[in-house]
C-alpha cells in the first residue's frame, strides 16, 4: 500500500516539478511549484512526520510561495520584457545544477540506497513532543546557530529595505 503510494506521490512530485520548469507563464510556474510542495508535504506525511509536514505546508506553500506569487504579480512579467540571459550565466547554471546532482547521487550511493524506498525505525519520531526533545537536547547547538543565522538574515533584510536618511 505505502509502496505504491510512495511511487504515485513521487510521480506527482516530479510531474509538477517538470511543469514548473516548462510552464511559459511565470504565475502558472509558481502555482505548479505550490503543487510540488504539496506533494512533498504528503511525502512527509507517509514518513509519519506530521509536524514537519504542516511546517513545510505553512512555510513553503503558505508564506514563501505566496510571497513569490505576490512579487511576480507586481512585476507583470511576459515574454517580450524578459531579458535574454548571457551564455556565461547559462553555463554557470548548468555547472551548479550538475554539481548539485553529483552531490545528491553521491549521498544516495553513500547511504546504500537499498530497494526499500523508506523505512521507519521509530514510527513516532515525527511527533511534536519528540521533535522538541531532540531539538533541545541532542541538536541544541545547531538549532541555536540556525536561529542566529535566521535572525541575522532578518536584520539584514530590514537594513536593506530601510531608506537612507540623509
Amino acid at each position: 500500500m505505502s509502496h505504491s503510494l510512495f511511487y504515485l506521490l513521487s510521480f506527482i512530485t516530479l510531474f509538477f516539478a517538470l511543469l514548473v520548469v516548462f510552464a511559459k507563464n511565470p504565475i502558472h510556474s509558481a502555482l505548479y511549484m505550490v503543487m510540488t510542495f504539496f506533494a512533498i508535504t504528503c511525502h512527509y506525511l507517509i514518513l509519519n512526520a506530521q509536524f514537519l509536514a504542516i511546517v513545510n505546508f505553512i512555510v513553503y506553500m503558505g508564506a514563501i510561495m505566496v510571497l513569490i506569487l505576490f512579487s511576480i504579480m507586481f512585476l507583470n512579467l511576459n515574454q517580450a520584457t524578459e531579458p535574454q540571459k548571457s551564455s556565461l550565466l547559462k553555463f554557470a547554471g548548468v555547472i551548479s545544477a550538475g554539481l548539485l546532482m553529483l552531490t545528491l547521487v553521491g549521498a544516495i550511493v553513500k547511504t546504500g540506497g537499498g530497494d526499500v524506498p523508506f523505512e521507519l525505525i521509530k514510527p513516532d519520531i515525527g511527533l511534536v513532543k519528540n521533535l522538541g526533545k531532540v531539538l533541545f537536547n541532542e541538536f541544541l547547538l545547531p538549532f541555536e546557530i540556525a536561529s542566529v543565522l535566521l535572525l541575522s538574515a532578518m536584520v539584514g533584510a530590514v537594513l536593506l529595505a530601510k531608506k537612507e536618511i540623509n
Partner: peptide, 13 residues
C-alpha cells in the same frame, strides 16, 4: 493554521 493559508492562494488566483 495551514488551512487558512491555502485560502490566500485561492484569493490570489
Amino acid at each position: 493554521l495551514a488551512i487558512v493559508s491555502i485560502e490566500v492562494l485561492g484569493i490570489l488566483m
